[in-house]
Nucleic acid binder design. Structure first.
Lengths: 195, 195, 195, 195
DNA sequence: GATGAATGAGCATTCATTCAT
DNA sequence: GATGAATGAATGCTCATTCAT
């Protein structure tokens, strides 16, 4: 077996074990047993327990980063609406295609330790900033409501995170398109029609 | 010192230590040192480490449960809009008046162990159900958009949770009323004005 | 049992185990088994394995430091010769009254790690310096041979160390006074009478 | 590369690594990295880590054994004094020409494990016995002080060992001839002139 | 012969919990 | 009730050694 192959094999099993048991309840023994390798082999490919975990988190950050596209209002081919929907769809897809990792991201990685918390916040900050810029562009074009873009960005991300969290953690079964559609409609009109 | 007094004293210090260090990094030693009692005393008042933690979480659930009022569309005195705003305001207030506990709830309690995860989900489920019912009532009255109320409920809660999370974890300084107002406006109109 | 009593009990058993097996072959389990306490108890009294070991070494340094008296040529009561003999005698006595510790000092502590090596060298340096000063005083008084006092000091210490080493390691059985007498005579006349 | 060449290459690098780090801190990885061979290759030439170490020690024993000449009082060409000085000089030379090995002998090999301790003691015993016999011969000829030759032998070896130890471990810089001369003078007259 | 990936026995250390005083 | 000394199960990690290629 090739070196990088073995590495990803261990990584994949580590991901499953972390997703199943959570970081602290996941023992190195569980991981190597799942991967079918010896204890020492694990340490041949990863510095320590935290390192595998962090790599899993880093990978999902990378994957998410690639999934997100900047909305371009000058794009002649696709309307802003279409681009937004496409974006939501890509993010949802990236998160749901590997649910174990998503569970780790949304559940186990939270509050694990200060360093990882910083990393998480930094990632959300980065995504948030991107979103804020798009929203600001949108305000200029009159297609985004006036108001605090940072707040908008947080609220939007939170709504999406919670939806995914419920799907992954509680096994809520919505088809991906449905999720995208509802999310989009929520962003467009909210839910209240009070006057 | 009275028995119940001593108990809450330990509980309060445990909360601070958990908030500061996170569940696993918080040692019983830290807690008893903070509370100024002997190690054994801790176990006179609580079964084990998890029990204190769970009690903290239970308390905030109770407090939140009390903060949330059922929106009553037939209420003659307050409009639905006013009731919704009041509700948001009460929840935000409950969460921000004890930030240590809120940090624990939103960060440390997540993914701690399967049993607690179930409790968390059950709480969100309970709140969600309440919200869903209100939303359904609202749909009947034409003051809530048509669509999947469960989804609405999840999206709404997620938006609010993330906002509070960012305030508590990153020290984002928004005045409470501001938070309520933005949240409300978000619920009423969303952010996109794409056509 | 008192706290300091328990401490010395563990220390004494650790000393025996180290002397019997050497630092690396001595396991914490051996020590606690010998002392009749639980594994954790060991760590209640000592930071780690190295710390006990170092304390044993420190103690013997202290004891030796106290055993050594500065030779005072102006002393009216005791001649220099008598003082030198007394000194040798005290040192030998200090080393032979606790052979386990002496074995540790002369055998296990050597080359254990850079930090401890430095400590050892520093101790020998200290003793050496003291000896050098005495020798220099002696040269002024004409009771020490002319020549490099540092060299004299090293040679003297080496001779004594080796003697003790052989007694402790190989169980060479010389009465203490004999050791002192021979050492003294060696210092006075050497062994060669070549012309 | 020839088989025996490769062997000595590994041996030499092992020596350097042992001297630099000490036995336990020296990892097989360090040795093979220094020697520029694969880990498995090491085991083609040596049984295990201890075996290389022991071979280094054995080699220095052999070299030292060859350096030491029996003092022959009937030798017409060289006086006993000259032979003794020559002997000291050869030993010092043998020890200082490969300081890495000497450091290993005097520091790392001490207290490493019971088997090696026995070997060390056996070597010193052998050298000691040789020395004792010479001393006894010398006593017959009236050129060695009366007294316990075993003691003389131990004291003499100890003095020399410590001198070399200080030179090698603390970088004391004495020219070799100087060391020989001082050692010789020490043996002839000691240092004290107390009456 | 040479390689280096894989192995797994071995061990120090931590810390929640207990219980004699 | 309060104490804190004692406990020991639990686990991450190291590294000498092996062996298939």
């Amino acid at each position: 077996m090739e070196k990088s192959e073995r590495r990803s094999q261990i990584l994949a099993h580590a991901r499953d074990v972390f997703a199943k048991r959570g970081y602290h309840a996941a023992k190195i023994d569980d991981i190597v047993a799942a991967a079918g390798v010896a204890r020492g082999t694990f340490y041949l490919y990863f510095d320590d327990k935290r390192a595998v975990f962090e790599e899993i988190v880093d990978n999902v950050f990378t994957r998410l980063g690639e999934a997100i596209l900047r909305v371009d209002p000058t794009n002649q081919e696709f309307s802003v609406a279409a681009q937004v929907r496409e974006n939501i769809s890509r993010i949802v897809c990236a998160l749901l295609e590997d649910r174990a990792t998503t569970k780790i991201l949304l559940s186990d990685a939270v509050g694990l330790d200060p360093a990882l918390d910083r990393k998480l916040l930094a990632f959300y900050e980065r995504v948030g900033t991107l979103l804020e810029e798009s929203l600001r562009d949108g305000q200029t074009l009159g297609i985004v409501a006036q108001g605090d873009v940072r707040m908008f960005s947080i609220l939007t991300l939170g709504a999406l995170k919670e939806l995914i969290y419920q799907v992954v953690m509680r096994g809520l079964e919505y088809p991906e398109e449905r999720i995208g559609a509802e999310m989009y409609s929520f962003l467009c009109h909210g839910v209240l029609r009070v006057e």
